[in-house]
Design a protein around this nucleic acid. Structure first.
Lengths: 142, 142
DNA sequence: TATAATTAAATTGTACTCAATCGAATTGAG
DNA sequence: CTCAATTCGATTGAGTACAATTTAATTATA
């Protein structure tokens, strides 16, 4: 009779844990740059979508960000409050809420464009390692 | 005069985003297994520490989990509520709160031990890829 | 030995996350 | 057409996260 092996329950043997800790660490680092734009991290990645597509509905935005309406509804209301987006129901289908970027939202892009460079190198990874990490994460996300 | 390049602001060019999305995805998958143990994900990784060390103070626990007292205080109260840990001030230094696993907390380990195997393969990565990811994440966490 | 500095938790306030549920609009099968 | 199923989004409730502040205890120093 051998002892049961509990090593699988050690924190150091989890893949999820460094993933979780690393994600929180990087978001924390974004904070100080995003404060200047009056954006939270989640609002920032939502704005990235708006800077690209100008208009999108909640469902589609959720698909891109892997977030549901429970998170997005208050987030989009906050962005509207700040004047960065406009929310209005679709004429074709009243269930659909179209969210559109405003002039102020577009203008924000100018301030945001310097952030990625500032964040670069904050991760202690070589460019090759960062690339490997990127591809592994997207593979895991599929 | 060349146009300014906004590609750095595209979601697909961020490393932080798949990290964030992947972290949330995996925690979501843990949920259904952890519900049976009446634990949230954060409580689960805290319990992993208790299963290893039996007793630890808030400060040390925070260092291991990369979490601060603002997160841990309510979490530990919840675990105490469920009967999995006991909280008491240190006799040597009244500022220090010692948190100790209970019998019920120990017993939980038996149910938890099957979870890692169930979670295995949920990530769509080969064992080698998972290992690479693990090391890159810990390097980034340093 | 007062008191200043430091330390450990707790508290406060703001902002996510997400499962579950709800209500309104739309669609589809009979 | 009509009612059931589906879809979209909003809402609710529990649980994080974390910066900033507070309180209590301990330690160091003048």
């Amino acid at each position: 009779m051998t002892e049961k092996n509990y090593d699988v329950l050690k924190l150091e043997n989890q893949l999820c844990f460094p993933l979780y800790a690393c994600s929180r660490q990087i978001i924390r680092k974004y904070h100080k740059y995003l404060d200047a734009l009056n954006l939270t991290y989640t609002q920032y990645i939502a704005m990235m979508v708006f800077w690209e597509v100008k208009t999108i509905n909640v469902k589609e935005l959720g698909k891109r960000l892997y977030l549901d309406s429970g998170t997005l509804t208050p987030l989009l209301k906050a962005l509207e409050e700040k004047g960065y987006v406009r929310r209005q129901r679709s004429k074709e289908d009243e269930r659909v809420l179209l969210v559109e970027i405003t002039e102020a939202g577009e203008a924000l892009k100018e301030q945001a464009v310097s952030i990625p460079a500032k964040m670069n190198g904050c991760m202690n990874l070589t460019p090759e390692e960062a690339m490997t990490l990127y591809h592994l994460l997207y593979k895991a996300l599929s």
